[in-house]
Design a protein around this nucleic acid. Sequence first.
DNA 1: CGATATCTTCGACATTGTCGACTATTTGGG
DNA 2: CCCAAATAGTCGACAATGTCGAAGATATCG
Lengths: 107, 107
Amino acid sequence: MGSTLGEFEQLVLLALVRLGDDAYGVTVRRELEKRAARSVSLATVYTTLARLEAKGLVDTRVGEPTPQRGGRRKKHYVIVPAGRRALRDTLRTLRRMTSGLDAVWDA
Amino acid sequence: MGSTLGEFEQLVLLALVRLGDDAYGVTVRRELEKRAARSVSLATVYTTLARLEAKGLVDTRVGEPTPQRGGRRKKHYVIVPAGRRALRDTLRTLRRMTSGLDAVWDA
DNA sequence: CGATATCTTCGACATTGTCGACTATTTGGG
DNA sequence: CCCAAATAGTCGACAATGTCGAAGATATCG
């Protein structure tokens, strides 16, 4: 089974973990721009989110309309166990490969 | 200037750092199988190595024939400053995204 | 030389990464 | 009511990465 996560998929999954409940397209993108200093279009975020869902790593639920000034309903995303596992494995591999190489991220 | 490294590119670059001088196709693959518990074909490793070179992230030098039982010459790879920088940035982003999320890799 | 052991390169195809443009919902005003 | 404005998501495409199996290059030893 192919359980490796792409570079961007990892970041999106991590954003979901950080955001908890309030995770949907716009917030995920914002989190990525702030914390990861990476600017991406919303379309890019949605595409990856859709693929993660197709792979069964995240779940979605369409929210109720909010009292704000109009706008379509939000589609919330949450990481599921399988997703958390995939993320854990990926990060674990990275840690194993970097352990003892402080020279890499110095300066 | 797209400076993001793919998931596998990161692992290969890290393998190069770990291997130092003795880094070439076969050893890189071995390092990946051992430390990263990831099995890949040699062709896969070479393809990525070639692309990293094309992007100017690694340098190569063809070695002299070794006294072993025959075989073609090895092509050694070494990460260059630009590569180290790209790797550092990528890992830094990951760290920023994971900081404070110990729950992710527990259990 | 020729068989055999080592390595690297080719040609292809599947996954991911990235968008710009377009569609769907909602709500406040006129 | 109906529509402009505000939000949020979906489509269709194309570039970059991930992955091989098969083929091509060199060496060394009898």
